[in-house]
Computed example of a mutant assay.
Amino acid sequence: MVKLSLILCVYNGEKYVDEAISSALDQSLEDIELIIVNDGSTDKTLDIINSYLIDPRIKIINQKNKGLGAARNVGMNHASGEYIGFLDADDWLDSKMCEVAYNEAKSNDTDITMFKIINQDDSTGEKYESDWFNLKNLDGRFDNKVFSPDDTKDVLFDFSVSACQKIYKNSFLKEIGAEFPEGIYFEDMPFFYYVYLNAERISIIREHLYIRRKHDSSITEKIDAKFLDTVPAGQIMFNNFVEGGFYEDYKFDLIAYKVNGPRMALASITDDYKAPLFNLIKEDYENIRKTEYYNDFLDNLGPKKKKFFLDMLKSDSYDEFIEINENKY
């Protein structure tokens, strides 16, 4: 068993994947494996991957394009490492990421160890920090300490959900049956909350061990059809809280978080997808109205989110919704 399995999933990543692979193989911790899932690339991605096959630590899995969630699940199924980490094909790792993260996780027997991410603007090369990726919601009390989800109830929804910001004990993931939703974007969100809430031992590292490339073609940069999936991702997340028995403990923040994601997406999504997103949100809210949780939405949402929720239910079309809201949602 190797100490750490890195899972790199790539689809048509010829522009950046070389740097991602190099950063994984140049780690100070050598006892790793790099599992590359080529998710049906049609460009030169596979040629670039094959150029690294001289390194025996690489496993390549070629499959038809199924999306990131399905590719990551395949990678996890093939991972033999004691711990698992994820690397996106357009990002790269600090050279000591695996060593520092593994030593922290191993010494404290953690299920999850989180570290800081730093952003780099692809056009200027400028690096910049963000509170979201800097674990700012965890104060000094969490330094050099193993903690549980019960210790972070008040800040759970302020965490970055990025799968790449953590390493996970492989046996723990298998024990809880962890997997990414398949066929949708924003698969990190339901995966993170499911895994985090089922963990018992968590720790953090206050070092930037992962570099996140910011460029125009990254998934979260352009608010287009991909953001339709904020609705099904939120449904999966909500159901995980309910089915896992976590709903009552988190319902106030959970309900706000579930409404706010699609609300913000609707405000920002390109005009040609506003009506389709409206239809998805309305259908979701109509289904909620039929459940025992409907009154919790009415009782726990703040004024702005509650108005959004009720105006959705009142409106038969996006145009009608806009008339009610006067573009202020």
Results as ranks from 00 to 15, higher is better:
S95T: 14
I48A: 04
D109K: 11
S23D: 06
K307M: 14
G69S: 04
V231Q: 08
L156V: 05
F321K: 05
D151Y: 09
S80N: 13
K306G: 03
E179D: 11
L254N: 06
K169A: 09
V17A: 06
K59Q: 08
R213L: 10
E243G: 00
T220V: 10
F157W: 09
D18A: 13
D91I: 11
A105N: 02
D122E: 12
L4S: 01
D121K: 07
L34D: 03
S268A: 13
L87C: 05
I223W: 10
F227K: 01
G177H: 10
R263D: 08
L46A: 01
D154K: 14
E200N: 15
E182L: 04
V146R: 09
N12W: 06
K282M: 09
D143F: 12
E104W: 00
E248P: 01
V100S: 02
Y83L: 08
N77K: 11
M76V: 13
A20D: 02
S80F: 06
N50A: 04
A163F: 05
N137M: 14
I184Q: 12
Y293D: 04
N239S: 14
L46V: 03
L8P: 02
F186C: 07
I54K: 15
L301F: 06
F238Y: 15
T230C: 15
L228W: 06
I255L: 03
S22K: 15
T152P: 00
F238Q: 10
T230W: 12
P181K: 06
N325W: 07
K305Q: 12
V161H: 07
N38C: 07
Y257S: 07
T110D: 05
S23Q: 07
L46G: 00
K136Y: 11
A256I: 09
L280I: 03
F157P: 09
K106W: 05
L277N: 02
K145W: 06
S130L: 14
Q235P: 01
L53W: 04
G40R: 04
E99V: 02
I202F: 03
D272L: 07
P262A: 08
D122L: 06
M97D: 04
L87G: 03
N77T: 08
D158W: 01
K290R: 14
E182W: 04
Y168H: 03
T45Q: 10
N144I: 03
E187W: 03
E179I: 08
N50R: 13
K3M: 12
H78Q: 08
M237R: 13
N240H: 14
Q235I: 15
I35G: 00
S130A: 10
D55F: 11
N295R: 14
E326L: 10
Y250T: 09
A79M: 03
S218L: 00
P190Q: 09
K282F: 09
E248V: 11
S203P: 01
S28T: 15
Y194P: 00
Y11M: 04
I204C: 03
D216N: 09
A79Q: 02
P190G: 06
F192S: 01
Y294I: 02
D188N: 07
E323V: 12
L138N: 11
A265L: 05
A267C: 11
Y294Q: 01
